[in-house]
Design a binder for these strands. Sequence first.
DNA 1: ATTATATTTGACGAATTCTGTCAAGTCAAT
DNA 2: ATTGACTTGACAGAATTCGTCAAATATAAT
Lengths: 113, 113
Amino acid sequence: MTNSVKSIFSQLGNFGQRIRELRENKGILLRQMAASLEIDTALISKFERGERKPNREQVKRIARFLKADKNELLTLWLADRVQYIISEEMSLAEEALEIVKRNIKDETRTHTD
Amino acid sequence: MTNSVKSIFSQLGNFGQRIRELRENKGILLRQMAASLEIDTALISKFERGERKPNREQVKRIARFLKADKNELLTLWLADRVQYIISEEMSLAEEALEIVKRNIKDETRTHTD
DNA sequence: ATTATATTTGACGAATTCTGTCAAGTCAAT
DNA sequence: ATTGACTTGACAGAATTCGTCAAATATAAT
């Protein structure tokens, strides 16, 4: 996903938001979860912030570890994937923002500080 | 796409089905369309049968060539992509769509146009 | 049936995207 | 300024997608 599209949508996906919530409510550290699941800490961090999407197996393992409803998490995860595809099509908005960004940059460069 | 998933869904996607219809109604051959669009005949054949998914630009070019409604084709194409993802998780699909729908509603309510 | 034409299929290397990992980074609290 | 929790960016390897080609199949006409 391009950065500009990322910024249009909320950073946290449905799935990531939920597992972070579950983890924090249990007072578990990323590093502990990572160790138990044998997944790199950085990767779980990215899952929670929606920067990366886990695969089906990882979702299931995460659900088991958090003692969470597997179907709930799989559903949120699926919703994220659909939402991602749809958001890719907002490329017109993206282009528009790029143009504005370029123009702002030019402005500030011209009126030197 | 895995074979098992392929067999769950009809071979022809929404998009492919429609452009084949449009092309045949105009009496245009694959090879002619291919030549005009500078896309390999085999590839367009695959598009029509839903074996491959075109990218956004190809959809637009195809629409222009067929003098078809660009938005209609883009929508069908997008629907195919969503349908593909969901086909892997049939049982959860409905719930996921509800979530996405809710979020879209929220989005449009927040970022007033 | 033979030929000609249209479409489909499978396989391939190239290009692109995705994945997990690492090291370095920020940030807050002590 | 040290520690602890998390984040970030970059990387190489894996996996997937891409367009192309040649061969196979289907369709039509003679």
